[in-house]
């Protein structure tokens, strides 16, 4: 699915009644099945952009489109993952993963079967009946990832999904995401603070300026796919990382 944004602006109202421009104006186009990573200083409107794309929030001006249709409300073709795993603590792992299907009215047998199919790819074997309170942060994010993927989204929106995890866990889970995304054929837009993660996963890295966030660099990562963790030791990989970092320093 193609995601496009034209002259988009998000402005909040500060407590004093003052207008607080958070994002834009910004325009870009993401091709179907492309992976875009967004990096930028905190408070520059990255989360606001994700919320607009998810249909959770109306833009103050301009618009966002899915396959040229303006986004008015949440769509079943779009999956959203937050920094916080956002699991329901009273549901088991398998029932958390199956939640979107349950809300869509899929029968219990069918949705549990579909969730069970995802479990091995997520590395959650043996934890099907565990509760979120029993999981580590990394495993909770895996469950959250499963919950997004189960609805077979055509667009994946990821807002710093691994931001709260330690470096090792983070690298492993982003490699798994890479694998799962490649199978899914979804367009992905991921906000991250980790430049190496951005370069490893993405086809393009968007660099945003200070608030109000504007697109100041669009770095095309031409590393071949499928990519592996070894690719991070390539000279080309290092070049892209330096390129993105230089753009951020100009932000």
């Amino acid at each position: 699915m193609r995601v496009s944004v034209r002259d988009l602006q998000v402005t909040y109202r500060a407590p004093g009644g003052l207008a607080l421009p958070a994002l834009g104006p910004i325009s870009f186009e993401v091709e179907p099945e492309q992976f875009v990573a967004i990096v930028g200083p905190s408070g520059c409107g990255k989360s606001s952009l994700i919320r607009v794309l998810a249909g959770l929030q109306k833009p103050s001006s301009g618009s966002a489109y899915l396959n040229h249709q303006p986004i008015q409300e949440p769509s079943s073709a779009v999956g959203l993952m937050f920094q916080d795993s956002n699991l329901m603590p009273w549901r088991t792992v398998i029932d958390n993963i199956a939640l979107p299907l349950e809300l869509a009215g899929v029968s219990k047998m069918e949705r549990r079967a579909q969730a069970a199919d995802l479990i091995p790819q997520l590395g959650l074997e043996g934890f099907e009946e565990a509760y979120p309170g029993e999981l580590s942060g990394g495993m909770a994010q895996r469950v959250a990832l499963g919950r997004v993927l189960i609805q077979r989204p055509e667009v994946l929106l990821l807002d710093e999904p691994f931001g709260a995890l330690d470096a090792l866990t983070r690298e492993q889970i982003s490699l798994d995401l890479l694998q799962l995304w490649q199978q899914s054929g979804a367009t992905a837009i991921m906000v991250t603070h980790d430049i190496r993660e951005a370069v490893l996963l993405a086809d393009r890295v968007f660099v945003f300026s200070q608030r109000p966030g504007k697109l100041i660099a669009d770095v095309h990562i031409t590393l071949p796919r499928p990519r592996h963790s070894d690719d991070m030791f390539n000279e080309a990989f290092g070049d892209f990382v330096r390129q993105v970092r230089a753009a951020i320093d100009r932000a």
Binding site: G55, P74, G79, L80, F82, N86, M88, L103
Partner: peptide, 13 residues
């Protein structure tokens, strides 16, 4: 939690 309300909204509950 507001986040869980958002989750329900994006899942079109």
């Amino acid at each position: 939690p507001e986040n869980l309300r958002d989750l329900m909204r994006v899942s079109r509950a």
